[in-house]
Each structure stands twice: as C-alpha cells, then as structure tokens.
Design a protein around this nucleic acid. Structure first.
Lengths: 199, 199
DNA sequence: AAAGTAAGTAAATGTTTATTTACTAATTGG
DNA sequence: CCAATTAGTAAATAAACATTTACTTACTTT
C-alpha cells in the first residue's frame, strides 16, 4: 500500500496554526487550509473525521501536549522552592515566545467552547499535567515553606500572569516602544513567590 | 420618520452574546442571529456596517465598556492599599459571575485577532481604563507602600489570576464536586497583595 | 512484474454564509 | 391628514462552506 506522506500531514497542522494565529479560528476553513497546505481537502479527511475532530486533535496533541511537556520538563533540574517555580516561568516563557502560532490556539482553549470542553475532558481523564504540579506544591506546603491554598488558586497564580505577559509580548511586537523582557517575567515570578511563602 | 425599536436592538446584542457563550464565536452567523432574535437579517445591517463591525461594537461597547466600568466603580469607596485592590477583586468577581455571556466574549478578546486589535486600538486611543489603575498603583509606589514594577507586570498580577478563577467558576458549574468561592478569590488576592508590598 | 491497497487528487455535492434587493410599515413634521 | 422618511421584512444573491464522489497514483507484497 501507498504510505502516508508525513510531510503533508505536518504541513496541514503547521499551516492551520498559522492561519489561526494570523486570521483567527473563526476564519479557518477546510478549503482555505487545504489550498494553503497544497493538498486536496480529501487528504485532511483521511486523517480526521471532521473539522471539529481536526481542531480538537490539533489543539490537544499538537499544542497542549507540547506546551505541557515544556512546562513539566522544567522539573528535571530541580524541585526546590522557589527555584522550581522560577524554572517553570523562564522555561515556559522561552518555549512560548518561540512558538507563537501554537500559543495562538492555546489561547482559544479558554474561549472556544469546543476546545475548552476538549481541554477539560483531557485533564479529567489523565491529570498528567496538573497532578505533578500539585504534588510539587503540596510537598512544599507540608515542608512549611509555602501557604496551603486551594489547588485552583495555586494554579491561577502560577500560570495566568505568565501567559498574560506572553500575550503582551506578542502584542508589543508591532509596537516597538513597549516590550516584555525575560527580566520582567522573573520580577513577576518573584512577586508571586513572595506572596506564596509562609512566614 | 419611523423610530428605531430599541428592544430589537438590545435583543440582537443579548442573543449574540448568548450564542457566542453557548456555541462559540466560530459558530455565530448573521442569519442564525437574526432568526434567534426574531428579526430580519437586514435589521442588523441598519445599525451595523458588517459582521466585523457588529462584533467589534458588541465587544467594545457592550462587553468591554461594562466590564471596565464595573472595575473602575470599585474605586468609589476607597483608593487605599490594600483595601482598593480587594475592592477591585470582589467587585469584578461579582460583576463577572452575574454576566456569564459577556464574560464569554471578553475571553475572545485575547484570542480573536479581530477583537484583540479592536481592544488595543481602544486602549491606545483613550487609556480611560488602565490610566486610573496605573495612577492608583504609582501613588502607592511613591508612598513606599508597594514595590515599583513595570506597568505590564502590575496589570498581569492584578487581573489575570482573577479572570482565570472566574473562568474556572463557570467551568465548574457543570461539575458540582468542585467550586470557586468568593473566599478563594480573596485568598488569591491576599497572596498578590503580600507579594506586592515593599518591606 | 503484476495484483492489491491505501493515499491522494480534482471536481462536485448540497448547504450555509454574509450581504442586498425590492418591498411594506410606522411614525412625524408640515 | 398626508407626504416624506426611515425602520423593518421576506426573499434572493453569489460566494464560501464542510464534506463526498469518482477517480488516479505510488508503494508493498507476493
């Protein structure tokens, strides 16, 4: 049998992320995507059942998977507090600014009901992402290093200001008079750490 | 001349927010909207030039405007630190959980390029929202109460964890075993405040 | 090297899209 | 009270949409 052309498969995903990043999820159509990826519409439907199926897989496998891997890889060097948290912030920041198009779809995970549902389903089923984060934090709660807080509060503090600053980073690329630097990310991280410490 | 029927105008906006909240911005069409609002498609085009024009006005005037008003109204009682910050958090939280459908479109402001551009344009032009916030913070920096930080960092700390918890609040409505409470919002706010204080 | 098979294409499907056309309804200034 | 004017409607338009049909291509296995 004729083997799949993996380059085409990747082109479809890469170009989809590009269109979403440039024009928005609202303006991604299967025909536009096929044309831009130099592929027949049918080719997309060999691998994916429908547009929704494609978007969910693109989001979960291509975008969320890589993002969460990048975050979790930060734990490799240290699980200390606050070094571990700083590592997460810097590594995540560096990963995201190198992956602008993935970040664009990641942002839709909080607004699009389709993707948001897929996100929740993935996390309820496996918990492979938040579980290690919560274990890390609970460990330092038990040690008496940081305050005991609800998991959702820990999570909100650890990720949302960082993602917000990355979004600003991209927005400022068209306006060179303003800029987000790695130093600012660290400054913000220090504030969060200071707030979390028990005393 | 025949006067405009303001009820119809409001129905169009209200139902648009409902559709966006339930099905996503990707699934809002002018025909679907007209039908749901019990109105001819042409009626929408009397007030709005195009779909994009409609979405931008819905976002800026209906959603962003009310949200920012709710935040700024928090300053009425006190501009002290940290009381002012706590006021912002609680009032914003209360406003948003009462305005689920507006919140849904607000979230798209960070993902949809169309709305994100409109958001930036509105803020660059007027600065009516962030200016008072920055003045409030700079005042307490000058007083020596809080640390001096870049405006973007202050903003990320002040708003993004809060919005994130509100999003979680809505997500948990279908899963009663988890919940976000006003107390958790305040706990999170306390952490941010503690981190920001100069010592 | 030919048969079998899945990958891939181009073109077509019927539907839905944003927007417009041609018309009617309702109100007010004269 | 009617002429003028704008609000509003129902139906139509052409383009774009997701997906499929009918077919060809390229590779593996025998």
């Amino acid at each position: 049998m004729r083997p799949k052309n993996l380059e085409k498969e990747e082109a479809i995903r890469t170009i989809a992320l590009q269109i979403i990043s440039d024009e928005g999820l609202e303006n991604l159509s299967m025909q536009k995507l096929a044309k831009a990826a130099n592929v027949s519409p049918r080719t997309i439907y060999i691998k994916y059942e429908s547009k929704e199926d494609f978007l969910i897989k693109l989001f979960i496998e291509e975008v969320l998977g890589s993002y969460e891997k990048a975050v979790l890889d930060s734990f490799e060097s240290t699980m200390n507090f606050p070094e571990g948290v700083k590592k997460i912030w810097v590594n995540t920041y560096r990963y995201l600014i190198q992956n602008r198009h993935s970040f664009a779809l990641l942002q839709y995970g909080k607004s699009s009901p389709l993707l948001n549902k897929a996100f929740q389903k993935a996390h309820i089923q496996q918990g492979k992402f938040f579980a290690p984060i919560h274990i890390f934090l609970k460990m330092h709660v038990t040690n008496g290093v940081i305050q005991d807080l609800p998991g959702d509060v820990h999570r909100a503090l650890l990720f949302s200001p960082l993602l917000d600053l990355v979004k600003e980073y991209f927005d400022y690329l068209d306006r060179p008079e303003q800029i987000i630097t790695e130093n600012m990310i660290l400054e913000c991280c220090e504030i969060i750490i200071k707030g979390m410490i028990k005393d």
